[in-house]
């Protein structure tokens, strides 16, 4: 049992931390792709922006969408609510409000991340190093959380935030990339880089080669990132966690959320990739995203804003 407001702040603390990491992964890969001759100028960057939903806001500020401006907008720009530095700030603000419910080490980690990120923004830190740093801070926060906090409802809400954010992010990333590849014939050189970038941004490049020992194909990439339970950022892996976490939370207020999570989990457990592709990947992911939003709403209604 805990205060609804506290649960909400724990949940959003870890969502924003996860979002910062996901953004760093996305921008890191985009940044290295933009150095390749195959890439077509700003195209990849606008795709990255589209994933985060910040494309229009960025175009208003930087109509040329020049690579340097976009990168600054998404990393250190305090005026962009979706920038990495703001994700770290919101994570820290939420943690600040519940510092009595997290361990001192967790607070110190999240507070130091924000203080240092702000400082790096002032110093103009090179981006590649910054993305690695953000990922490390996220790993550190997660490791500190796993290593220090009691296994209680607080821990469940923190993990719930992580996997809700991660599921949302993975689905959006595949959706944007599959849209870019479109219905073109598989395995063109450009596709190789796009799928490769997607796998790398989700930390699944090595897993792909280990599991398939084959060239990159959209079918196999989709299967890996949607249905494989052993790849930690796949939709299936995220739903495994969410479906396991919700029943652990004490009380009888969350029936709807639990039912939605169990349904989504069952679909991902027993769907087959050919069926999904036959109906269209884009349609499938759009449907998944609306189900994940619905689950988020149900979690909010049951636990986080209890009237």
């Amino acid at each position: 049992m805990m205060l609804s407001r506290t649960a909400s702040q724990l949940y959003w603390m870890s969502r924003y931390m996860e979002r910062a990491e996901n953004l760093a992964r996305l921008l890191d890969v985009t940044h290295s792709l933009s150095l390749l001759p195959q890439s077509r100028g700003g195209a990849d960057i606008s795709a990255a922006l589209a994933t985060t939903g910040a494309l229009e806001a960025c175009r208003t500020r930087h109509p040329q969408l020049a690579a340097g401006d976009v990168m600054h907008f998404m990393t250190f720009d305090a005026a962009n609510p979706a920038s990495i530095v703001n994700c770290l700030k919101y994570a820290r603000e939420n943690a600040h409000a519940v510092r009595g419910k997290i361990t001192g080490e967790m607070w110190e980690s999240i507070n130091a991340s924000w203080l240092e990120a702000r400082q790096m923004g002032l110093e103009g830190r090179p981006l590649a190093g910054f993305f690695d740093w953000v990922k490390e801070r996220s790993h550190l926060f997660r490791g500190t959380t796993y290593g220090t906090i009691q296994r209680n409802d607080a821990f469940s809400f923190i993990r719930l935030g992580t996997f809700m954010e991660r599921a949302d992010n993975t689905a959006r990333l595949i959706n944007v990339k599959s849209h870019l590849v479109g219905n073109a014939a598989e395995d063109s050189a450009a596709d190789f880089y796009l799928w490769g970038a997607l796998l790398r941004s989700l930390g699944a490049f090595e897993a792909y080669h280990e599991l398939y020992r084959d060239t990159l194909s959209s079918r196999r990439v989709a299967e890996l990132l949607i249905l494989r339970p052993d790849v930690p950022r796949s939709l299936r892996a995220c739903m495994d966690e969410i479906a396991e976490l919700l029943p652990l939370i004490k009380g009888d207020t969350g029936h709807r959320a639990k039912r939605l999570a169990a349904t989504l989990h069952a679909e991902l457990s027993y769907d087959e990739i050919d069926t999904i592709l036959a109906g269209g990947l884009h349609a499938y992911l759009t449907q998944f995203l609306s189900q994940i939003y619905g689950l988020g709403d149900a979690i909010h209604g049951a636990y986080l804003e209890a009237a």
């Binding site: 205060l3 609804s4 207020t253 209890a306």
Partner: peptide
Amino acid sequence: ELVEGQDLFVKNNRVYMRTTAG
């Protein structure tokens, strides 16, 4: 618990806090 005003409400001459379990 560390509560804010919004976490508490009055009903039947008692004060209650809103929690994840009711």
